[in-house]
């Protein structure tokens, strides 16, 4: 089995986001860019799957401008066998990303496509026949569990869940639409029935939980478990500019480095010097969106990015009586 891992170059998770003074976006000049931490986790997971003998090859994929190749080299130095770079200078929106992913899956026919935040089991492993998409850690856990146990169950008790949607939250639904597969979004629990090729998905909807039964293959997007991330302030964003594709994840991990490592279900390896040297001779195949028959639509143009309006300064009150008085007679709210 071949595993394809999508990795991407993003603003380093430790960088505090600043709006540019000319309002054209957020500051990316002189800002540390790194591999998306979730992509590192995904790649590490892919490498471990390969090392356990379940996969024969790990292919790293990135999309974006020429600089993205740096990230690809990092991935190769970590141990990916070869790289694919879809070169695109413009902004990539979820629709284009979904189309490029679909096209690459058709070219490479991987058994498993893992995206930093998204894991994608494609149709060529029909015996499994399900897709995990915008997910983060959980589907990687799920994948690991599946290998171990042959099925995946997300239990509320073990993985109480909470939605962390990225700002866009579109790619999974869009890939499902393009493939004509059923979808289970915001899933908090997934039970697979391999025999009947059905997934039972419990998903969070406004005001409760909904249970769906989906024919496999399907696209299942998961929501995150807070317990693995407990005490970690995690901030997930979707930002699309010329340097970022898919979903940019930014962690605000407090100040404690130890907390940061808790967040990660595996510890991505460091690239050693010999491996960095070796990575230089590994093959990076370049595709253009045209070669993949995907027309990049840049339908959305960022006009400006501004700071949100500040709230006017409030007042401090000294007692409950004063508070009640203010609420009654000043704010007229009670």
């Amino acid at each position: 089995m071949k595993i394809m891992v999508a990795i991407k170059r993003v603003v380093d998770y430790a960088v505090k986001i600043r709006v540019k003074s000319d309002k054209t976006g957020v500051e990316t000049q002189n800002v540390k860019m790194s591999m998306n931490p979730f992509c590192e986790i995904a790649l590490e997971e892919a490498l471990r799957i390969k090392e356990s003998g379940l996969a024969s090859e790990v292919v790293a994929v990135t999309m974006g401008p020429a600089q993205s190749v740096d990230t690809l080299r990092t991935g190769l130095a970590m141990g990916a066998d070869r790289g694919i770079h879809v070169e695109s200078t413009g902004a990539l929106y979820p629709l284009s990303v979904a189309k490029l992913l679909k096209a690459l899956v058709e070219v490479e026919k991987p058994g498993l496509l893992i995206l930093g935040k998204q894991v994608f089991l494609n149709a060529s492993i029909r015996e499994v026949g399900f897709v995990f998409l915008p997910v983060k850690l959980h589907c990687i856990v799920a994948w690991r569990l599946r290998i171990l146990c042959g099925s995946v169950t997300f239990c509320h008790s073990r993985f109480p869940v909470k939605a962390i949607d990225d700002d866009c939250n579109q790619t999974g639904q869009m890939v499902a639409g393009l493939l004509g597969w059923p979808q289970g979004t915001f899933a908090s629990k997934v039970v697979l029935d391999k025999e009947n090729r059905v997934a039972t998905v419990e998903r969070e909807v406004d005001g409760g939980l909904e249970t769906l039964s989906l024919d496999l293959p399907a696209v299942i997007t998961l929501i995150e478990s807070p317990n693995t991330l407990s005490n970690i302030r995690c901030n997930v964003q979707g930002v699309y500019d010329s340097y970022t594709i898919l979903i940019l994840l930014i962690f605000k991990i407090g100040t404690d480095k130890a907390e940061c490592t808790d967040l990660r279900l595996n510890h991505p390896r460091y690239a050693t010097l010999p491996n960095i040297m070796k990575a230089k001779s590994k093959v990076i195949k370049k595709f253009t969106p045209q070669e993949l028959n995907v027309e990049i639509q840049s339908d959305l143009e960022v006009v400006q990015v501004t700071e949100p309006p500040k709230r006017k300064a409030g007042v401090m009150v000294s007692s409950v009586d004063e508070l009640i008085d203010k609420l009654k007679n000043e704010a007229h709210i009670i």
């Binding site: 869009m174 890939v175 499902a176 979004t185 915001f186 406004d206």
Partner: peptide, 23 residues
């Protein structure tokens, strides 16, 4: 943009070949 809209609209957008704007 509740769970209803976020679930349905991007899928419909993919069928129509357009990029939706969220939130």
């Amino acid at each position: 943009s509740g769970s209803f809209g976020k679930n349905i609209l991007p899928r419909a957008a993919a069928l129509l070949g357009v990029s939706p704007v969220t939130d």
